[in-house]
Amino acid sequence: MTNPEPQAVAERELCGLVNGMAHQIAEHVRQRALRLGLTAPQATALRELTGPMTMRELAERMSCEPSNATFVVDKLEKRELLERRPHPTDRRAKRLVLTPQGTALRERLLELLGEDSPLSGLTQEEQGTLQRLLERAVIRP
């Protein structure tokens, strides 16, 4: 019988590193969001709004429940950073679309997020490798 302890230690250490990286990234987003007068969830929503999408799509990208995304979207809409528009093929759904002001703020946010990112110490190739490894670990067939 093999000793499972070395594997358990390795997994614990790896989980600690992934958790630490996640905390660093979250803090980075929070600090950059504050500079723009946003909350971290609002910044995350703006970052993820790469084009028109439904609330459900945004919630998936934000890794949250649609009700939480709705709360964030309501705040962004109040600031006139995005609009809810009719979906072209689904009468029941609305599409979230950035306003020109929202697009400009998103561009500024992306610039700020790129400054001193926790991942900036990695080359593009290393970031790609990390992404592929994490996808393999997270996305199981």
Rank of each mutant, 00 (worst) to 15 (best):
66 P>A: 03
66 P>K: 03
67 S>L: 09
68 N>Y: 09
68 N>T: 09
68 N>D: 11
68 N>V: 04
68 N>L: 03
69 A>W: 03
70 T>Q: 13
70 T>N: 13
70 T>F: 08
70 T>R: 15
72 V>G: 07
72 V>T: 15
72 V>R: 05
72 V>E: 02
72 V>P: 05
72 V>M: 04
73 V>T: 13
73 V>S: 11
73 V>L: 14
74 D>V: 04
74 D>S: 13
74 D>K: 15
75 K>P: 00
75 K>V: 00
75 K>W: 00
76 L>S: 08
76 L>H: 08
77 E>S: 12
77 E>N: 11
77 E>T: 12
77 E>V: 10
78 K>Y: 01
78 K>D: 12
78 K>Q: 14
78 K>R: 14
79 R>P: 00
79 R>G: 02
79 R>F: 08
80 E>W: 06
80 E>M: 06
80 E>T: 13
80 E>K: 14
80 E>V: 12
81 L>S: 08
81 L>A: 05
81 L>T: 07
82 L>M: 06
82 L>D: 03
82 L>E: 02
82 L>P: 00
83 E>R: 15
83 E>I: 01
83 E>Q: 13
84 R>T: 02
84 R>M: 05
84 R>I: 03
85 R>C: 06
86 P>A: 11
86 P>E: 10
86 P>Y: 04
86 P>D: 08
87 H>Y: 05
87 H>G: 02
88 P>R: 08
88 P>F: 07
88 P>L: 06
88 P>S: 02
88 P>E: 11
89 T>R: 14
89 T>L: 15
90 D>W: 02
90 D>F: 12
90 D>I: 10
90 D>N: 12
92 R>C: 00
92 R>Y: 11
92 R>D: 12
93 A>D: 09
93 A>G: 02
93 A>Y: 02
93 A>I: 01
93 A>E: 14
94 K>G: 01
94 K>P: 00
94 K>A: 14
95 R>K: 10
95 R>I: 10
95 R>L: 13
95 R>H: 12
96 L>C: 09
96 L>N: 09
97 V>F: 07
97 V>T: 05
97 V>A: 10
98 L>K: 04
98 L>Q: 05
98 L>W: 01
98 L>V: 08
98 L>R: 02
99 T>Y: 01
99 T>L: 05
99 T>I: 03
99 T>A: 06
99 T>E: 06
100 P>M: 09
100 P>K: 10
100 P>F: 09
100 P>R: 11
100 P>D: 13
100 P>V: 06
100 P>A: 10
101 Q>E: 11
102 G>T: 04
102 G>W: 04
102 G>H: 05
102 G>C: 03
102 G>Q: 03
102 G>V: 02
103 T>W: 01
103 T>Y: 05
103 T>N: 05
